[in-house]
Amino acid sequence: MKITWVRWLLGVFVLVLVLVGCSTADNEMAGGNIQAVNHTLSNINWLSVNGYRADGGGGRSCCIIMPTKWRPGLKANIEWELDPEPHAKLPSVTSIEFRDAYAKHSANYRRYAAVVDIPEWPGTESCDLKVHFFTCNQVEVTTSCWAPSSPNYPIRVPMGMKEPSVCPK
């Protein structure tokens, strides 16, 4: 049986209508910012969440795409680079010695990865994704609309924490 191009096109059109008809609001996605909240004395050079890269300096970075409605099983695959000596003295950028000193310093950068659950957010709006970095290379995320300084913020851990001599397993 020979299928004409009109029938083929009609079949594709019906298939697209069926697929669009199966789409629901639960599958809608929206863009938001990523924010690093560093509770340690080290520096977070950069981070990425599910492949979306961001600055580790604490400000908001654009963008991450997330569902508009939370659903069970949402995960954040987080990767980051840590500078354990953020206040190291380096020669002036214009000096000849800078390149060698920087190469030696950056050789101490460490990279880590973790997969964490994204907690439920109420309603249909999340307020960006905030990634908290703790000692012992632990991370946690929240989509809370409250500022980290608010008493209503869900993560209440002090800033500037020293790395313990032994980390729990």
Rank of each mutant, 00 (worst) to 15 (best):
P67Q: 08
P122T: 09
L10N: 08
E163C: 07
L17I: 06
V141L: 02
H132F: 13
S165Q: 12
P168I: 13
A107P: 00
V20E: 10
A30C: 02
C127N: 10
V139E: 05
P158A: 14
G123L: 03
H39K: 14
A113W: 06
A113Y: 09
N137S: 13
S165M: 10
A114T: 01
G21C: 04
E79R: 15
S106C: 07
R60K: 15
V166C: 10
S23N: 12
L10G: 13
K75C: 01
A25I: 09
S165V: 14
I65Q: 10
N152E: 14
V12E: 04
I118E: 00
L9I: 05
N43G: 14
T135E: 14
M161H: 12
V6E: 01
N108G: 07
N27L: 11
K89Y: 05
S61N: 05
Y102Q: 02
E97G: 00
C127Q: 09
V6Y: 09
G123I: 03
P148R: 10
P84E: 05
T68I: 09
P86I: 00
V157Y: 10
P158I: 13
I118W: 01
A54H: 09
V37I: 15
I155Q: 01
L15H: 04
D26L: 09
P67E: 06
W8N: 01
V14T: 13
F98A: 08
V131C: 07
E81Y: 02
C167W: 09
E140H: 11
E28L: 15
A36E: 08
A88C: 04
W8M: 09
S61I: 04
T40C: 11
A107S: 03
M66A: 11
P158D: 15
G59Y: 15
S61L: 03
P168K: 15
A54N: 02
G56L: 02
V16Y: 06
Y52N: 06
E97A: 13
W146E: 13
L47Q: 07
T94C: 03
V93R: 15
N50C: 02
Y153E: 05
L129R: 07
D128E: 12
W121T: 01
V37M: 10
Y102T: 00
M161N: 15
T24P: 00
T143P: 06
A30S: 12
K162Y: 13
I34Q: 01
I3D: 04
G21M: 02
G21A: 12
H39W: 14
G21S: 09
A54M: 07
N45E: 12
F13N: 01
E120H: 04
V6C: 03
K89T: 10
V20Y: 10
S150Q: 08
G21N: 04
A114Y: 00
M1Q: 04
P119E: 02
G123D: 03
P158S: 11
Y109F: 09
R53S: 10
S149G: 08
A114H: 07
I3K: 15
S95A: 04
P84Q: 08
R111A: 03
Q35A: 11
V12H: 07
A113K: 15
L19F: 10
K169M: 08
W70G: 10
M66D: 05
